[in-house]
Design a protein around this nucleic acid. Structure first.
Lengths: 181, 181
DNA sequence: CTTACCATGTAAGGCGTTACATGATTCA
DNA sequence: TGAATCATGTAACGCCTTACATGGTAAG
């Protein structure tokens, strides 16, 4: 029970909330989970097939709006597996900020060019922050309805807190670099 | 010039500051860079050999305190390579927070067990925050001496800002979960 | 004398992305 | 009619970690 593949756990988690297609799972990754996790089709589809083979999830092929689709549902064994993983303490949270890396070696290219990296970072955050805030507002309204909403809200609140810290840091960092010119 | 291996860039960056052994590079990763990057011996040593073969860095074998060591220095071509990479805009900052993932699916195991994840996360941050603050204090004192210090300080300040945001969020999150019991 | 640290590396295997391949439907 | 979106998948390849393998030195 030590080395679960993360992609399996994410998929099981998403299927524990809803019945989904592979395509929809990818969409969840790119919207809801994007602030702390990601995955590509190249890992999602093979994982779905493998999970189905192990009977942790079930496959339902159908024609929806003339399109061939495959919907997946979670089985009891899959829910068990998910629960067990959820109870194991986290071993590794990882960050790989290329921006910080480029910043760290900034003396090679100087303050102006380094500030440009900070600004691009800032722009991205500034763009995404309102999206997160809207998510939070929507969740605040419906949070009583479903148990899962509150947990979703917590992750969104995490995103907001962190993004706001990023914004503050960007301003400070640019100021410090400007003062040195 | 699009697809540089990150490990190469990190190594070149570290060698642009100091002459180092592979072992020392690993130590830098585990202390200075650990807040936004990581690497293992299994990627460091092969990368060093490859970079030496491409003559971006130079190898100096010696006996230090009776130990066989290999010191690496950066070459002009290596410094050029590093600079070029530093000027390219960042394409991907990635986060993989297993803690957030487990939180997101928290409804499966309930508020109490989810709070335990938050507390472990909090403990780790609480432990590392003073280390960062000390780093910052030390850097503030010596920052006039070397150009590179200021950039290093910026990354440390980033760490502090973010970690403080984490702490605030942890308190809030635990409160929210407690209110639901 | 034994534990921790210094020091260098390899091999196997896992995990995941990118790019490719295909084809239907919806919307402008 | 063409672009965007829905929908599923594979193959090649790259990158990295884990575990293993080895041996010297410093400190208690």
């Amino acid at each position: 029970m030590a080395n679960e593949k993360k992609i399996d756990c994410v998929i099981l988690g998403l299927l524990s909330h809803e019945v989904l297609t592979g395509y929809e799972i990818k969409k969840r990754m790119d919207t809801t989970l994007k602030y702390f996790w990601g995955a590509s089709y190249g890992s999602i589809y093979p994982a779905l097939n493998q999970l189905a083979q192990e009977e942790l999830i079930s496959k339902y092929e159908a024609k929806e709006n003339g399109r061939d689709t495959i919907r997946y549902t979670i089985n009891n064994s899959g829910r068990e597996y998910l629960k067990q993983w959820l109870e194991v303490p986290v071993t590794k949270d990882e960050i790989r900020y290329e921006t910080l890396l480029k910043l760290f070696f900034g003396s090679e290219i100087g303050g102006e060019k380094t500030s440009a990296h900070i600004e691009r970072f800032e722009d991205k955050i500034e763009e995404e922050l309102p999206v997160l805030k809207e998510m939070a507002a929507n969740l605040e309204m419906v949070k009583g309805r479903e148990e899962a909403h509150i947990y979703y809200l917590l992750t969104v609140k995490f995103g907001i807190k962190v993004y706001e810290a990023y914004m503050e840091w960007c301003k400070e960092a640019k100021q410090i670099l400007k003062g040195r010119e």
